[in-house]
Write a protein that binds this DNA or RNA. Sequence first.
DNA 1: CACCAGATACAAAACGTTTTGCAAAGGGAA
DNA 2: TTCCCTTTGCAAAACGTTTTGTATCTGGTG
Lengths: 340, 340
Amino acid sequence: MTTRVGIRDVAKAAGVSVTTVSHALNDATSFRVKAATQQLVRDVARDLGYAPNKMASGLRNQRSQILGLVSDEITTTPFAGAMIRGAQDAAYDRGYVVMVVNSGLDSELENREINMLRQHQVDGVVYARMYHQSVQVPAELEGLPTVLLDSVTDDKSISSVIPDEVGAAETAVEAIIQAGHTRIGMINNMDDIPATHGRREGFLNALRRHGLQHDPRHLVIAQPETAGGREAALGLLGQPDRPTALFCFSDRVAMGAYQAATALGLRIPEDVSIVGIDNLEIIADALWPGLTTVALPHYEMGSWAVHRILDDIENPGEPAVQTRLDCPLIERGSLGPPPR
Amino acid sequence: MTTRVGIRDVAKAAGVSVTTVSHALNDATSFRVKAATQQLVRDVARDLGYAPNKMASGLRNQRSQILGLVSDEITTTPFAGAMIRGAQDAAYDRGYVVMVVNSGLDSELENREINMLRQHQVDGVVYARMYHQSVQVPAELEGLPTVLLDSVTDDKSISSVIPDEVGAAETAVEAIIQAGHTRIGMINNMDDIPATHGRREGFLNALRRHGLQHDPRHLVIAQPETAGGREAALGLLGQPDRPTALFCFSDRVAMGAYQAATALGLRIPEDVSIVGIDNLEIIADALWPGLTTVALPHYEMGSWAVHRILDDIENPGEPAVQTRLDCPLIERGSLGPPPR
DNA sequence: CACCAGATACAAAACGTTTTGCAAAGGGAA
DNA sequence: TTCCCTTTGCAAAACGTTTTGTATCTGGTG
């Protein structure tokens, strides 16, 4: 193992002092080094494969260039991957790197993990949830720049980013209405979370905006999984005056609706149109026909959160901002005109 | 912002020197400090909320307690989440933390990201792929303890961990045979990757072991997605002497087989049994009936890789090891006895 | 009573950078 | 030629730990 090359090696090889090397490389203060010298130093550094030790520079600068990302649960959905990737890409672009830590639901463990992040002197923390929810920010984060990802809290001094739930539902239902439907059902989540309320509101907004009658029997709630969606859709689509289109709380619920439709001998989209939310590609692409759905901007939220935190670090004192990101419609094949 | 509490603050508060504090806290060399003093120091440190600065200790010890995890693509499947979580949990248990970096397919970017990891002085790197494949380890990793996750390379001096593809297929097919089937089809992947060959081999092994005739027309290849599985299954199940059970390359392919069976009016598992590989819960749980499948040990591989790397760091010189991890059968409802 | 060994605590150096305060060199104006 | 200013380079301190070598204290033994 070749012993790592340090700044003094570069200095020696270039025939200058370590000060000069440092100045040449971090050209901020570089009025102090001649252009030719700077070029020389850089060439030598590259040839030697010199990579500045961030532990040393971080120690000196009191800045680690590391961001922490703490999340609750990252195993079950691909959402986590998108968020992490969004965060990591943004961090990379700005010269930072991300430490990921996840704790399931164990807040004791979470605190210890946050403590580890602190020990590594992270410059800030993205506190992420996999499903949009309201959270209590752990006291351990006190004093660290923090932004909430896919979650909100009462403390308005903390920035946060969430999907625009109401807008997402409106987008979906608008598309359904544009396709010509007037009897539109919704299978909502039965859990008391922001997404449930927001999507219900968006659904009702869109109907109202177009002067459509809302039949309360067509708005049902279910467990937000495939089985729940299936049950609910069987009920909804079994009625004589069944809806001609179903807006589903999520793509998994929509998958249940597909199963129900198939079981009832209804073709999609000829007999019934179905629209979901999530753009969970692994499902939306796999359904037959493909599921028209509204994408949740996980990648963008991850990216936004990191940019916000870095802005805050580089330019402290800016007021916190609570953001809602747009959710675009992704068209596949499950939305068509109503039958007959 | 309260200025961070350092070791000298603890020393002052406890009325001892920083040396003593250090010794008291890292009890390795602690023969040098009286038990009572040690306890005192620890109490004071806890009360003050002292958290040792890892940049400083890392600089001194030449050990960052950080592991790098570089992966190709983490957005599309939940596999990445399981791997990362397995790695992170293992790291946490041993006092390490994980830096995640992902580069898509851009090897130029990958090199720059590995370089960032180096700058942060990571103690080792887990080089991960999302799908089992053969890779070339980038030269940038030279000199860093490295283990391959879900991938292998020619260089046998590098440890690696992959799923036991052959065993996974044998497990699946054994289960099918145990259920009483004798005409068993397989929808394999058309890509030339290790999983393709291993699963084919396992399929044939199991048949042979039970003296079952192998009808070449019942072993087909397809694009490893739902659409491919659907096409292939339509062909397979449309024949008069159709197989009574289908072993699918993946759960997504199996989902296509479900669609084909439904389209042909075949019930699962009464008319045809289906078994997959992956245990992609979001699909396997959502299908109706639930998909019996063989789990790929992503979490375990992540954990194994980290433990291996830490063993290597703490105890250098141990020979590299190439591991294959078992893949357990997960029973849901798609495997039953053959019809009639 | 003097001495010594063992137990305990301390001061200082080192890890690899960045940055400040100075010194040296170079060049132009008087 | 002399002086002074500008440009360029250097030495040293600092960041927060760990660890080595040494000093001090305690109490037991001869």
